[in-house]
Amino acid sequence: MGIAVEVADLYKSYGSVRAVDGVSFTVEEGEIFGMVGPNGAGKTTTIECVEGLRRPDRGTVRVLGLDPQRDGYELRRRIGVQLQQTALHPRLKVWEALDLFGSFYPRRVDGNSLLEQLGLADKRNAPFDKLSGGQKQRLFIALALINDPELVFLDELTTGLDPQARRAMWDLVRDVRNQGKTVFLTTHYMEEAERLCDRVAIIDHGKIVALDTPENLIRSLGAEQRVVFSADKRLDMGMLRQAPGVTRVERVGERVVVYGKGEGLVSGVIGLLERAEVPFRDLRTEQPSLEDVFLALTGREMRE
């Protein structure tokens, strides 16, 4: 697999604010690469430097082998871009938008089949300002795909969407990747990055603090998983400590939380409970997530 995006030592300031403070990474062809971090971490500035919409103060950016600043026109023919703060003319109809933006490219795909694919076929004649948030986002994805791009940029794709629309959007992004395109996205939803991305760069205060697959990031954290259940007050807490990998046990009223590491934790806890014939209910396990990774790396909760 080749390299779609290569960024080295990227710096960008607005006045005295360092938005991007020395960022380096590569995006491989055919992957979904995600940049995740809180609002104001520098995600949008980074992606817009890569798209060629902003000029970096320092550093090198190569996209599909091109310099976005020098070869901007050539590059923009081959990429698809969904921007964060953007709109179309309120009275522009969906089909007109595709027709118009398609006319800017030498190569383009059929707008109708794109609308079909994105579930917008029945909105063909609707003006932009009559679309819902999710429909607008899908239209912007359609515009980003109209030129059959090799590389698609999605900036905060699902912000403001309800959970159902968000999941539908994830399926769409996977479809795009399955067509052989590379996807570079930003999000401030850790869950989105974890579920959707092949590799994730966690960015905070303009710096990449970690970059790997979501699984590796979580594993490298070495965080404990938790087994949570409710049980009768007579339960012997000392007994639970015998399960393999248990580090500590907590109890609040009827609710018991067993912390630990390793594969055998869950079956160990259940085995002990059954052998002791202790009735328990509502047992579930909680895995560490990217959220925990972010917390561990930055000392802060991700949610604003």
Binding site: L53, Y73, E74, L83, T86, A87, F104, Y105
Partner: peptide, 17 residues
């Protein structure tokens, strides 16, 4: 208003001169 609503931004992300 095209500038304010980000309409112009969207055109800039295309190869349109």
């Amino acid at each position: 208003s095209a500038r304010e609503h980000g309409v112009l931004r969207r055109f800039r992300a295309t190869p349109l001169h």
